[in-house]
């Protein structure tokens, strides 16, 4: 049969076995993988804006810590997760405000403001950020993230609870 256009019986069997096998593998494999990774495919909706402090209470030139919780429905349960950050008034001007996240950009530990060192110190791997969130030393690959914020008529600092990475 060599030289003719007909495929041999053996090749035909190989081809159809491969095709049917591939089809069966896909029918079993795709639902299996989709089932396992299903929660990761859900869109994470941005939470509602949260009021975290009033400017009256925030001193000028010193980071003011705040925290808030975001509640999400995970599977069959509502889970509240605490997030935190710092409000920095760089000057007396109410518009001159920076809202930093306290999540270390290395491996997500919470940084604390250290007055003596004049920087944010991460307790996990001894990293330090300056007052504007830039890395002074340690392993973090990038500066601290920040939150978009608005200040309403009464001086409340209202943030959008989605951390924005620098750079």
């Amino acid at each position: 049969m060599s030289g003719s256009n007909h495929i041999s019986r053996r090749d035909f069997m190989k081809l159809t076995t491969g095709a049917i096998g591939g089809f069966i593998a896909a029918v079993i494999g795709i639902p299996s993988i989709a089932y396992l990774i299903s929660p990761a495919l859900r869109e994470d909706k941005a939470g509602k804006p949260v009021s975290v402090a009033n400017l009256e209470n925030v001193p000028v030139g010193k980071p003011y810590p705040f925290s808030f919780t975001v509640t999400r429905v995970n599977g069959w349960e509502r889970t509240s997760t605490a997030y935190g950050g710092f409000i920095l008034r760089r000057s007396a001007d109410p518009a001159d405000v920076l809202v930093l996240s306290s999540r270390c950009t290395h491996l997500s530990c919470r940084v604390n403001w250290n007055d003596e060192a004049a920087g944010f110190v991460c307790p996990c791997h001894d990293a330090m950020f300056d007052i504007e969130g830039k890395v002074l030393y340690g392993p973090p690959p990038e500066p601290l993230g920040h939150f978009e914020h608005e200040i309403d008529g009464e001086g409340n600092v209202i943030i959008t609870p989605v951390e924005i990475k620098e750079g």
Binding site: P31, A34, Y35, S38
Partner: peptide, 15 residues
């Protein structure tokens, strides 16, 4: 509730 979650929310959970 976890079974309702499997049936309604997990992809191919019903299957």
């Amino acid at each position: 509730e976890s079974i309702l979650y499997i049936m309604n929310d997990v992809q191919f959970g019903w299957l």
